[in-house]
Design a protein around this nucleic acid. Structure first.
Lengths: 166, 166
DNA sequence: TTCCCTGCAAAAGTTTTGCACTACT
DNA sequence: AGTAGTGCAAAACTTTTGCAGGGAA
């Protein structure tokens, strides 16, 4: 039986699973657009599909570069406008780690928090149920409702530590 | 006996205590400058003193406005340069909540985390020992060393909830 | 007297917006 | 056809930097 404090490194999924999930999300995206009387367009689809497929912690700049490969005609403005749209459709989270630029992550991953290596910049995801529960308790003691939370650990990752000792 | 999950709202200190602490910090600041062969100047003192005295979660803009009242001659560049200097002297933390601009906080407060009200923008500080401990455990399971961490809860605060029900 | 520090203005980096044109529905 | 969406360029906003002059040690 896992102990309370056990962490679960967020698991890798197979390529096929990932593609399926991307398509699910695209369907949801189209539905949300329709609900709001907004249009599906080639650019929105390209951007959203690349975003859903690329993985987490993407910056606008990285997304732009990747979308350009598929559709070189797309402008930065459309990237940002589509990111905002996805946020309004509750399909992405915007995160600000300790850097200048925002990073984006698809909603509907299992909840996880982040460890950010200060040496190599790697972002490791982990889950810890006990912390999740504790956060709910804190919110209830503040008599506040909790809509979301964020926990980030900063430090030096195992690999960088090993390298340092070598 | 307090339960593990008990939170401690970060306490208020009296004006006198605050002023004393500001002066302590100014002394430390001067010492750190001297160590590094850097100079104390009127602007640095004005900025640092206002910063230490103002409280937490200050943006560069707010600090600039406040310093201007005392010393209207100070430029934005000096604000930023002094903030960077205070950071290098390990006297301030830079934080990025979910906004565009950075916010700054003096080092040496008791450690606390933040609840941010999504309605009124208020930032409530709290402490929770159990969460702190849990974070150490997570880090050790990742075989990583932890230098700092950040936990933020987002939601609607008690006051806003009350107002909403009224 | 020597450098460090400062203010100003310009630059840099990220994100948003105005506008004329395009293309969904 | 009508309206929302797009690309481009310019603007906005936050933060950094170059440079010439000023001030602490």
């Amino acid at each position: 039986m896992p102990r309370l404090s056990d962490i679960t490194p967020a698991g890798r999924t197979s390529d096929e699973q990932r593609r399926n999930r991307t398509e699910e999300r695209m369907t949801t995206f189209h539905a949300r657009l329709k609900e709001r009387g907004l249009k599906s367009t080639g650019q929105r689809d390209d951007i959203a599909r690349v975003f859903f497929d690329m993985g987490h912690h993407i910056s606008a700049e990285e997304l732009y570069a990747e979308v350009k490969k598929i559709n070189p005609h797309v402008g930065y403005a459309t990237i940002y406008r589509t990111l905002r749209l996805l946020k309004e459709c509750a399909l992405l989270y915007e995160r600000h780690f300790d850097e200048g630029q925002a990073r984006y992550e698809a909603v509907g991953e299992r909840h996880h928090d982040h460890f950010i290596c200060e040496r190599c910049g790697k972002i490791i995801e982990f889950e810890n149920e006990a912390i999740e529960r504790m956060q709910e308790i804190v919110a209830s003691q503040l008599k506040a409702t909790l809509t979301r939370h964020k926990m980030e650990l900063y430090g030096i990752c195992a690999e960088c530590l090993a390298e340092q000792r070598a």
